[in-house]
Design a protein around this nucleic acid. Structure first.
Lengths: 216, 216
DNA sequence: TAATCATGTTAAGCTAGATTAATCTCCTTT
DNA sequence: AAAGGAGATTAATCTAGCTTAACATGATTA
């Protein structure tokens, strides 16, 4: 698919920025993020660093494929990804986007070591900070603060997913689109419209219609 | 509304069973439940008991009303409840049912002390074991096992809610109904059809049609 | 006994949103 | 320069599921 291909110029850029990115493969973005929630000692930072794995992905690459067991909980240092489920008729349904400072994984698959329900794919060159479920367990035990942080994060994610379910019930497609723009203005700029349509659970044609109505 | 009213005979029964239930207001159901996940010492049990509040509700009573701040995380010792959101046009959208051994609350409201997005109402006489957010915090600190348990429970709940979102995208109403029966056979027996329709995000008339198709 | 209420069913007509297919605009590649 | 691909738009037609409304049933109440 064309998403894997890039122009010569873009390739040069990617190669270059790839090199640049290699120069900055550290857990710093994660520490910055964490320090907004909890305070970490230097030993704790070292512990976290020893259990994390920093990895770069190119645009189009899959971090997780439906059917595989999810190996990592991923923190996005930079880049943009989508998580999507492909149904029987190969239709893609985007479950979430992830940009800087977001966590993305198939938690069910990671926890139960079962085949994943969905795919995670990079929409831009991305750098992820990865924790295997084993390392995460170790981290929970050795740095209880982190267990606490993850409880809180998961609770927030759970609340957000319930709000999404409520929106799915009680709002029209147009209202859901407006809500999406309100909630995620940064993401709206960064991903193509047809993916937003997929996230909203409507066709790209219908989203286009909604937008033209809004423009009037 | 008639849901509050009951026949004389039923009232007698309720009164009686209310008395009987008063005789058994203990945290035992919660301990039984917890012991399926973690092991508790006697001191820990006492700690939990000291922070919990056992309360009976009659059929029809609200445990939480939309707009109020959610005061408790509720464990269902017995009974049956629904959590539902009422939209602008006063339409009810059932988000979840809760029976024995389920937890039910508006976590977002509880955590952030913000007005709740939805109602929690008893469909049967119910007994809840309640933890205020303060007591829950205390519990997390004094019994770290519990913090761990709640992290795991929340993760599971989060996974379940994502699966529900996926189902909402990729399954037809009929498929969603069949899935519901598969996942929650006990609940199907216990709540009226029109509430199941609401849970599935369809009208009661359409569910009726689906069922008649299935019966053919 | 008659009335009421909760629940469920059936059927006619209606709309939000899907499907299909053609067209357009940028980019990128050759 | 031409061809191709990704993304977006528009319009015609179609359908899953909604709305409305009438009716059935069984339980409860007066």
């Amino acid at each position: 698919m064309a998403i894997y291909r890039t122009s010569g110029v873009l390739n040069d850029f990617l190669y270059l920025s790839g090199l640049l990115q290699l120069a900055f493969m550290s857990c710093q973005p994660l520490f910055d993020y964490m320090s907004r929630h909890i305070e970490l000692t230097n030993e704790e930072r070292l512990k976290i660093e020893s259990l994390a794995k920093v990895r770069n992905y190119l645009k189009g690459q899959y971090v997780l494929q439906q059917g595989d067991v999810c190996k990592y909980e991923n923190f996005v240092a930079f880049g943009c990804l989508k998580a999507f489920h492909a149904d029987e008729s190969a239709q893609e349904h985007i479950i979430m986007f992830a940009i800087e400072d977001w966590w993305v994984s198939d938690l069910g698959s990671l926890l139960n070591q079962t085949p994943s329900d969905f795919n995670i794919q990079c929409l831009e060159n991305s750098q992820l900070i990865q924790f295997s479920s084993q390392n995460l367990e170790t981290l929970y035990h050795e740095v209880p603060k982190i267990e606490r942080l993850f409880r809180i994060l998961t609770q927030k994610a759970f609340v957000a997913s319930w709000q999404r379910i409520i929106r799915g019930f009680s709002l029209s497609a147009k209202e859901r689109y407006l809500k999406f723009r309100e909630l995620y203005p940064q993401i709206e700029q960064r991903v193509p419209q047809y993916m937003i349509a997929s996230y909203l659970g409507i066709t790209k044609e219908f989203l286009s219609k909604i937008r033209s109505q809004l423009a009037e």
